[in-house]
Simulated scan of single mutants.
Amino acid sequence: MKHIFLINPAAGSRGRQAELAGVCRKAALEQNLEYEILVTEHPGHGVELVRKACLQGGGQHLRFYACGGDGTLNEAARGAFGMWNVAVGHFPAGTGNDFIKVFGRQMNRFFQLPELTKGEELPMDYVETNCGGAVNVLSVGIDARVAAGMRKYKRLPLCRGQWPYVFSTAENILRGLGEEYQVIIDGKSYDGDYSMIFAANGRWYGGGFCPVPDADPQDGQLDVLLVSKVGRMTAAQVVGAYKKGLGYQYPQYIKRVPAHEMEIRRRDGKDLCVNLDGEIAYTPRLQAVLRQGMKFIVPRGVQVERREK
């Protein structure tokens, strides 16, 4: 088995590359592991590095540890997707680290790298699309526009945690809340005027949003929320409920649909803005399929914290 540490120097507090490399090297040497440290240089580079390592692995079992945030985990998973001899894990060093919150209070064990390198592998679901993949969440509409726009707010001093999302949300509400979409979920049409279309594999995103508290990344289905267009006066209330997982209080605006496959287009033919774990892609037609069997590295004994649906 070979352990490969994928470090994103831009994740979380900048300037941590040397620190993270030192932690990885120490854990590997103390356990006498065969290891390698890879450092990303630009967005998408992690996908390239992981895919190249997989192709050169010669059938050896490989474990990749995403040392960064959810975006780094996304790139590691995208690079490893479809490889039978590969597992991915998350050593959290980003600002959100949202996917591993499905493990509840046991999430803290992921911060101990030796616990991960000694850990086991659990099967997880993974979202495959025609414009990239997602481990945690996928969304189209104002939510994706918020994710695309929040980057400028992250550059502001002291603007951390959920605040870039809050500011970008306010900006995009002023720009307009709805678009006409053609939506097909598992062969059934759900066309409509929506503010956003959100698909949950995990539970948390955006530094504090938890719209589907009982989502389960091992249950073989996506939980899709179709959020109808709302007026600006109503938006704050609906967004507040959506953020806390209380969308059922507004059934006239938020419809929940289980899904295995999904296709989305804008009725005007323009490109969709798609959010994949915080990574942004543009496509005239989104095709998404839930896949099972991604190998995810967890500390021994850690399981997804189950919640009743």
Rank of each mutant, 00 (worst) to 15 (best):
F5Y: 15
A10K: 10
S13V: 12
G15M: 06
A18S: 07
R25W: 06
A27Q: 10
L29A: 13
L29S: 07
Y35W: 13
E36K: 13
E41G: 11
G44T: 07
G46L: 08
G57T: 01
Q60R: 13
L62A: 03
G68N: 06
L73R: 01
L73A: 06
A76H: 07
G79K: 05
M83W: 14
G89M: 09
F91I: 12
F103G: 06
L113Q: 09
E115A: 09
L122Q: 13
P123M: 05
P123N: 03
M124W: 10
C131H: 11
A134M: 03
L138I: 13
R145N: 14
R151G: 04
C159S: 14
P164E: 05
A170W: 11
R175T: 07
V183K: 13
D191V: 00
D191E: 08
I197C: 08
Y205E: 10
C210V: 15
C210Q: 15
L222D: 01
L225C: 01
V227D: 00
V227T: 03
K229I: 02
G231P: 00
Q237D: 10
V239R: 01
V239K: 01
Y242W: 14
K244R: 15
G247M: 05
Y253T: 02
E263T: 14
R266C: 10
G269V: 02
G269C: 08
L276R: 03
L276K: 04
M294K: 03
K295D: 02
I297E: 01
V298L: 10
P299R: 07
